[in-house]
Amino acid sequence: MRLTQGQFSFLPDLSDDDIRVQAQYAIDNGWAVSVEYTDDPHPRNTYWEMWGHPMFDNPDAAAVVFEVNECRKEHGGKYIRVIAFDASPGWESIRMSFIVNRPKDEPGFRVVRQEVDGRAIRYAIESYAVREPEGQRYA
């Protein structure tokens, strides 16, 4: 099951050139672009691992593509996303976020039903991938 989070996730995978153009748009707007990765695809997993610092003072998006490819070398089997922060309101707010790398095999999510308080049922979703310990997911 294809993970659909952030922008462009219903489109075919972005090429390096697509990534560059999108990142350049963010840079031209004055947003700080950074690269993050994770192996926990849960939609409420907001904070992914940072790949290096956010790139505050790079005028050209080639640097972003370069970092994405560096990250792919190390974490090619995980999810990698590019996010753009806008600091102009005085705090960091996300303006863009899109996945640029995904595992070969995405097993998807299952519904977990939990009986609580008599016969009431609580629903949760859980990724099949997270049943393996961290670092061993997505083989």
Binding site: G52, M55, D57, P59, D60, A61, A62, A63, F66
Partner: peptide, 14 residues
Amino acid sequence: APKTKEVLKKAMGG
């Protein structure tokens, strides 16, 4: 390595 790469990234496009 990180220091050199940082500089190189800053110079990209220029």
